[in-house]
Structures are given as C-alpha cells and as structure tokens.
C-alpha cells in the first residue's frame, strides 16, 4: 500500500479546485455543486464551505446515481443513497459534479443521465479528487485534484474524515 495524498495535500487540492471553479465561471453566480454519494457528497460540501470563505456562499446538493447505472444487472442490488436538490434547483445553472475517483467514466455517464431527469442545467462540469485513468467512455474532468497513473489491477482508496476518520488517498494491490 502506498500513500499518494495526505491530509494536507487533499486540503490544498480542494482549495485549488475551488479557486479554479471561481476563475472558470467568472465568480460563483448561478454555480451549484452536486456531489455523487458517498465520498463525492463530502467533497462537494467541503468545496461549498471553502467557496463561502473565499468568494460567496454557494448551494450544494447530492445526486444518487444508482438507479441509472449500467452495471445494475452485474451486481446484487445496492442500497440507495440520498438525493438532495440545491435549494434553487439546477435549471439554467452551471452544475459542478463531484466524485472522489474518476476511473471508467461510467459513474459520470450515469450522473449525466440522472441530472438530465432533474432539469436542464446551462452547463455541467466535473471535479474529481483523483483521476486514475483507464477511461471506457469519452469523459474527462474539468477540475482534478491529482492525476495518478495506475495499473488496472490496482485499487485507489480515498478516505475522508467525515466517514473514514482520516483524510488520505492510498493505492493498494498490483505491482508498482
């Protein structure tokens, strides 16, 4: 197992992503954050509080994408997580989606479908803490905490203090 991001590095990456979101959208007007459960939700909440301190308060929500997955028939049914819409909705907004790890891109495809059911955002952007490569769909992230080249056999494990008691990103398995 090797540590690729420690707590300080995660915090700095999230701060940088926050600044990039402000820069890219020329402020935070009509920007809303949507986290993909489980860990993407915590990242969205953290970015929302960073943005509140460096720019202005911003709405965030959570988007459970389970019912839109394309691998439902490959695994036993999994429990659903909570979907919470931002107070003013997503219609006409610039939506920034958050996930912990960008891998095949299938989760994001499902998220785009789920988002399409909820309304028509002006634009959708994607922020991830880790991009580990091995995409199976034409999807890329707009904001990346850290690019980590991995072998397909390895597992990237993101721990966040809200649920795992500590902040870190580790790689396990495979030969490195």
């Amino acid at each position: 197992m090797s540590l690729v991001l420690d707590s300080g590095e995660i915090t700095r990456a999230l701060k940088r992503i926050s600044h990039e979101i402000v820069e890219h959208n020329h402020g935070t007007d009509s920007v809303v954050l949507m986290g993909i459960p489980t860990r993407g939700s915590f990242l969205a909440a953290r970015i929302a509080s960073i943005l509140a301190s460096i720019e202005s308060p911003i709405e965030h929500g959570y988007l459970d994408i389970t019912m839109h997955r394309d691998d439902l028939r490959l695994r036993p049914p999994r429990p659903l997580a909570e979907t919470v819409m931002p107070a003013s909705g997503i219609e006409g907004k610039h939506v920034v989606l958050f996930d912990d790890v960008l891998f095949s891109g299938r989760t994001i495809r499902a998220a785009l479908d789920a988002l399409g059911e909820l309304g028509r955002p002006q634009s959708v952007q994607l922020a991830v803490l880790v991009d580990r490569g091995h995409r199976e769909l034409p999807i890329r992230a707009d904001y990346v905490g850290k690019n980590i080249p991995t072998s397909i056999k390895e597992t990237v494990k993101v721990s966040l203090s809200e649920i795992d008691g500590k902040d870190c990103v580790e790689i396990t398995g495979g030969e490195r």
């Binding site: 459970d64 019912m67 429990p79 659903l80 909570e82 919470v84 309304g119």
Partner: peptide, 23 residues
Amino acid sequence: ISILDTAAQLQNLTSGTVKKLPT
C-alpha cells in the same frame, strides 16, 4: 428495513420532476 430505506430514497428521487427511472 432496507426495503423501507430504499422506498424512502425513491420518494426523494421521484418527488421532484423525476417520474420515471430507467432501472
């Protein structure tokens, strides 16, 4: 309880504009 939890999340999910899921 897990069935009831799933139903509760579905209520969340379908209370807004989403009337149909592709599942």
